[in-house]
Each structure stands twice: as structure tokens, then as C-alpha cells.
């Protein structure tokens, strides 16, 4: 247990009649980028806030780097860097001043804090904006500064709440590249509902819904354990009635159609492999290709939510 970066035991949070977290158990190993996945309102932000002591759990406990999280004891927060979903700064400060201010809060001396601020401005590519007021920053710049402020104290665990959800594609690419680089130094615990981000940077994943953990495993493990075998079928033109026909087959679990592309999730992969060519043979020249593909995290995610 001492080797875990984050550990939650029976973490529960109730707001009146609403159960935001319902006995969440979670173990996050060190030095991984850990994706904390769930639909909106699943309890991701609540978990994050409990981990940094912004709110208290109704029941259960959480540990970070082996130390019990408590609102009253700020020392555990020395091990944590936190980026909220919508980072807000003092607009009158420059990013360098803000990072130096955070340096003082994590216990660095004045010169150390200023040095660390310069290092981090370089890391998040904000060096040229170092003397500008944060008030005029774009969303992407704020997000990068938010990650920088979380890193000032060289935390053992970095908690990022939806770090890329409100960014444009370029901003998202930059933030994900940054997260990728950070994995060498720290444990990144990142909540998101963007599955493509998880596919790209996370090694381990936990999926929660309605405050409960549905699954936790390595990305590949999760695919193998929870995803149904997937077949992709591409046609040259739309094939009317094909999706319905495939759906009616006894070994089909689900069919998703996106234009001329159909994704078939099979209950029985060997029967699907045997019988699918016969079914598709009726398409004649309209068939472009069909193949068995690796299930995506989205397949796992959707399947788990459906099971739940």
C-alpha cells in the first residue's frame, strides 16, 4: 500500500439526497498517467476536490503518497499539485509573479521560487508571456499556466481535472504533450470524459459512473476484459437495412452506424468470423472492406455504462 500514489477506501460524498460518490475504492500506482473516466456528473470532480481537501467526504478515507488526506492538515498537500477544471488566477499578476507566489506557498524561498517560476514558464512555453498580465491570457495559456502552478512544489501526485476539455484542438495537443512529458517525473491523475485523450496519454484507467467504480485496469487489459470483439464494415454507398439485419443476428451485441461505416460488437467472435462473410456477400460490389479491429476505449466505456 505504501507504494500507491492515491488510495481511496469507501469514499462517499452525499449532498442532501444526491449521492455524488458512493463508496469509491481506487488504487493508483506511482509514476503512471492515470485516466479517471466517467460521464458528466459521475463524481470525478468531487473525488478530486476530496483529494486536495477542498471538500470533506461524508464517509471513507483517501490517502495520497501514503498520507491521510484531511482538510485540517495542510502538510499532505505538499505532495499534491492540483489543476481545477476551470483554473482562475489573480488577473493583475503576471504568470511569473503567480508562480513565484505559489512557490512561497509551497515553502520555497524568494530566489528559489523565482528560479522555479522561470523553469516552469519554459516548460509550459509561456516564457514570452512572462511579463504580461494573466487577465489577458487565452484559455489555452491559462490551462498551461494552471499545470505549471500545480508543478511548482515538485509534487509526487498531479491531479488534473478535465485538463483539455475546454481547449481547441491545438491547445489540447499542447496540453496532452505536456502531460506526456510529466509522466517521467510524477504520477498524473487526470479526470476526463474525452476518451481520445485517455487513449493517447494514459497507461491505466478507472471508469466511474454515479459515484461508483465500474472498472480499473491497464488500458489494454481493460479492452481485453470488457470490450466485445469489434468488426468494422465499410460500404461504398449506404446499405439500407444492413444495420438492422446485422442487429438481428444472434451473435451480435450492438451495431453502431456512422455514414457508410458500421461497427459491429459481437457476443461470439468465432461465429461472427464464420457467418459474417455470408451475410456481407449479399452486398456484392457495395462492400469496400470488413475486418476485425481492436476495440477502443469508447467501446469499453459504452459497454460498461450499458451493463451498469
Amino acid at each position: 500500500m505504501a507504494g500507491l500514489a492515491i488510495e481511496c477506501r469507501g469514499l462517499t460524498k452525499r449532498y442532501g439526497a444526491v449521492m455524488a460518490l458512493d463508496g469509491l475504492n481506487l488504487e493508483v500506482p506511482r509514476r503512471v498517467v492515470f485516466g479517471f473516466l466517467g460521464p458528466n456528473g459521475a463524481g470525478k470532480t468531487t473525488t478530486m476536490k476530496i483529494l486536495v481537501g477542498l471538500i470533506a467526504p461524508t464517509a471513507g478515507e483517501a490517502r495520497i503518497a501514503g498520507r491521510l488526506v484531511s482538510r485540517e492538515d495542510p502538510t499532505v498537500r505538499r505532495s499534491v499539485g492540483y489543476l481545477p477544471e476551470e483554473p482562475a488566477f489573480y488577473g493583475w499578476m503576471t504568470p511569473r509573479e503567480y508562480l513565484a507566489f505559489v512557490g512561497g506557498l509551497v515553502g520555497l524561498s524568494g530566489p528559489e521560487a523565482r528560479r522555479r517560476a522561470d523553469e516552469l514558464l519554459e516548460l509550459v512555453d509561456l516564457r514570452e508571456a512572462a511579463r504580461r498580465r494573466i487577465g489577458g491570457f487565452s484559455r489555452g495559456m491559462r490551462q498551461r499556466l494552471g499545470i505549471a502552478q500545480a508543478l511548482v512544489g515538485r509534487p509526487e501526485v498531479l491531479l488534473l481535472d478535465e485538463p483539455s476539455s475546454a481547449l481547441d484542438p491545438l491547445g489540447r495537443r499542447d496540453v496532452l504533450a505536456l502531460i506526456d512529458r510529466l509522466a517521467e517525473e510524477t504520477t498524473v491523475f487526470m479526470s476526463t470524459h474525452i476518451l481520445a485523450d485517455v487513449e493517447r496519454v494514459c497507461q491505466q484507467v478507472a471508469i466511474i459512473a454515479q459515484g461508483r467504480l465500474l472498472a480499473q485496469a491497464g488500458k489494454e487489459d481493460l479492452r481485453q476484459r470488457y470490450a466485445a470483439p469489434v468488426f468494422e464494415i465499410e460500404t461504398a454507398a449506404e446499405a439500407p437495412g444492413l444495420a438492422e439485419r446485422l442487429c438481428s443476428l444472434p451473435w451480435t451485441e450492438r451495431v453502431v452506424q456512422e455514414g457508410n461505416l458500421l461497427r459491429l460488437m459481437a457476443r461470439d467472435a468465432s461465429r461472427a468470423r464464420e457467418e459474417l462473410p455470408t451475410v456481407l456477400g449479399t452486398l456484392g460490389g457495395n462492400l469496400v472492406r470488413y475486418e476485425q479491429v481492436l476495440p477502443t476505449l469508447e467501446d469499453v466505456f459504452v459497454r460498461l455504462l450499458e451493463i451498469q
Binding site: L54, E86, A88, L105, V106
Partner: peptide, 14 residues
Amino acid sequence: RGTLPMVLAKPISR
């Protein structure tokens, strides 16, 4: 303004 969470997530007491 939402500036509190990032400050109070640091090792300082309220």
C-alpha cells in the same frame, strides 16, 4: 472569481 481552490490546494491552512 474561483481563485480560491488553487490557493487552498497548497500546503497552507485556511
